[in-house]
Amino acid sequence: MTETVLQTQALTKYYGSTLAVDHLNLKIPQGCICGFVGRNGAGKTTAIKLMLGLLKPTAGSSRLLGCDSQQLLPAIRQRIGYVTEGHRLFRWMSINELQKFQRAFFPKQWDDKFFADMIEYFNLPKKRKIKHLSNGERAQVSLALALAPNPELLIMDDPTLGLDAAIRRQFLEGMIELIMRQGRTVLFSSHILGDVERVSDRIVVIDKGVLRANCSLEEFRAAVKKVILSFTDSPPADVDIEGLLHCRRSEKELELILVGPADEQITQWAKKSGAQNHQIVKMNLEDQFIEFTAPPNHRRLFQWEEK
């Protein structure tokens, strides 16, 4: 049976009267690469900080590698790599000094060769101070520092934020390096769905602090569908199909965003509703995510209509 490395139970966090994380129940099995996605302010960073015991929950609990997040022992922290949001490192230190600093906390696990290889791969000047590095270079140092102790669980908070496409690719390749090692688990939050699609095998969607999805990437890709139905007259007023997320109408068309129903169910409903024809449109992950997390009354800013 696969071991659960990360588990939260009704994890809730309020900032004053603002609800940031709402009864989050999450289970991440060992060995998976989990993309943690959500819109800005969805509660990703708060959830990650709660899991790492950097914030205190208002209610609920979370466990990392079997240990309560609020009482994470140094020995447990040693097994968890953490890449902070914005790659905040000590600006006055050089890469060499940071390496020595970090290595002191992981005396048995630290892989000097791996760190040196990564720094060389990213072509980073070892003697340069962090404050003189670009955003991308800081991200690379941050990743090398998190990976060199060979962590069992790697948690990264929006690691590719603000990086250009080339640096992002290098960064992801660095991540894949860890993924190649067996039994390692990665949880990384991101806004860039392309990155999630490239490396993840599991997706966790959080919206306004509420867990909306926690499944394999394939399941998510198969579940969220866009259906366009054409009618000879105006579309029916009531749309009572299972798993309906959004419904957009035009004069003779109905655009439905659905979660869950099988293609046969859609076909049956299309017939029942009197649609002239229907089309299940293939969506990319980004579109699926946007539709999945859009509010119910969401309207496009610009509605282009053919005249």
């Binding site: 900080k49 950097l54 140094p74 953490y82 902070t84 490192l89 000590f90 600006r91």
Partner: peptide, 11 residues
């Protein structure tokens, strides 16, 4: 500089 999380998450 928001470096507390980096400092606190260690052994």
């Amino acid at each position: 500089t928001r470096t507390w999380p980096f400092l606190l998450h260690r052994s």
